[in-house]
């Protein structure tokens, strides 16, 4: 069992959170988006070994945030609230 830090609530049980995908994987916009870009957006993941930047949501308070964590050690490096903008 891990504790994840919600930017608003503080440390909470990992079961209260839901994974939202890689940070920075913004949905392509416009009519001229090539299929390779769509494929990249939909199917290709960086899957880093080490530091990863991910979107998470705390289901109980509804807070969306970017969490940086190490996929090897499971250490959480940071969690930052999203203010409605796309995560870079």
């Amino acid at each position: 069992m891990q504790l994840f830090p919600c930017p608003f609530c503080g440390p909470r049980d990992e079961t209260e959170f839901h994974y939202g995908g890689d940070a920075g994987n913004a949905r392509p916009d416009g009519v001229d988006v090539p299929i390779e870009r769509w494929a990249d957006y939909l199917y290709l993941r960086t899957n880093p070994k080490g530091t990863a930047r991910e979107i998470w949501v705390h289901m109980n308070c509804g807070e969306f945030f970017v969490m940086e964590r190490d996929t090897v050690t499971h250490k959480v490096l940071s969690s930052t609230a999203l203010g409605g903008e796309h995560a870079a």
Binding site: M1, C6, F8, C9, G10, P11, R12, D13, T15, E16, N60, C61
Partner: peptide, 16 residues
Amino acid sequence: GTTLDPRQASASAALS
């Protein structure tokens, strides 16, 4: 009921 530490402050009363 919960693994949350009841002595540790948490901003939201919504929890599992």
